[in-house]
């Protein structure tokens, strides 16, 4: 089995750069991904900025406990190399920069999957996603809550798609759980429909910025 084990911070210092390489791979290379910054209550925090050329193909992983299985690789939290089908394995600590960036990316995959339950995914053309990277800490539960807050209150997503009818989009947006601000730009009608809003107060509290 020709497999690589890539350590994103378990026993070395790799984190910020390595995780971007992973995300690029998970997008099939069809993405421009970078770090930016977002201001939350006067704190300039790093953000993850994703520009997707093929949002239709980005499917969430199969979660098997602390192992996430993607179509051609796996992500595992902790030091142990999991027993998964052939493919590279990326190891990362449960908390930390790499895990925070990874979970920020996951929130986009979950948002697209949620939209795909009511809209035709094959019509998704391009997507842009900006999400503040939550202040992670050694407390896993606290960090996980902050990841969730970032996704539900701090993320901004633009999705360009084709739909015959703006009403279908409206209906899809109504059915979404809180996900920050989501805008769908209908290429057919030239209209934009927006749902959700940035929850700065909640983010401030969740991030411990008070």
């Amino acid at each position: 089995m020709n497999r690589q084990i890539i350590d994103l911070g378990v026993s070395n210092a790799a984190s910020w750069h390595g995780i971007l390489e992973l995300l690029h791979r998970l997008c099939g290379g069809a993405a421009d991904i970078s770090y930016g910054d977002r201001v939350v209550s006067g704190f300039r925090l790093p953000s993850l900025e994703i520009r997707l050329d093929d949002p239709a193909r980005l499917i969430p992983p199969d979660r098997q406990g602390t192992v996430h299985v993607w179509h051609d690789c796996a992500v595992a939290f902790g030091a142990g190399v999991p027993d998964v089908p052939a493919g590279d394995v990326y190891l990362m600590p449960e908390c930390g920069a790499a895990a925070t960036v990874y979970h920020a990316f996951l929130s986009l995959t979950e948002l697209l999957a949620a939209l795909g339950t009511t809209l035709d995914r094959t019509t998704f053309q391009w997507a842009w996603y900006s999400i503040p990277l939550a202040p992670f800490c050694d407390d896993l539960a606290k960090t996980q809550a902050r990841w969730q807050a970032a996704a539900s209150g701090g993320a901004v997503c633009s999705l360009w798609m084709r739909c015959e009818n703006d009403e279908l989009i409206r209906s899809a947006l109504h059915s979404l759980p809180p996900c920050g601000e989501i805008r769908i730009h209908n290429l057919k009608t030239a209209n934009t429909l927006i749902a959700g809003t940035l929850q700065t107060d909640c983010l401030t509290k969740a991030f411990g910025l008070e």
Partner: peptide, 26 residues
């Protein structure tokens, strides 16, 4: 062709004769 973010970046940088760089921001 579909023509996405990556293609747009190349189109611009080629048009600038290798003397310009495009980055995306917010």
């Amino acid at each position: 062709s579909k023509g996405g973010f990556l293609a747009g970046k190349y189109f611009a940088e080629i048009g600038m004769g290798g003397l310009g760089r495009l980055t995306y921001g917010t």
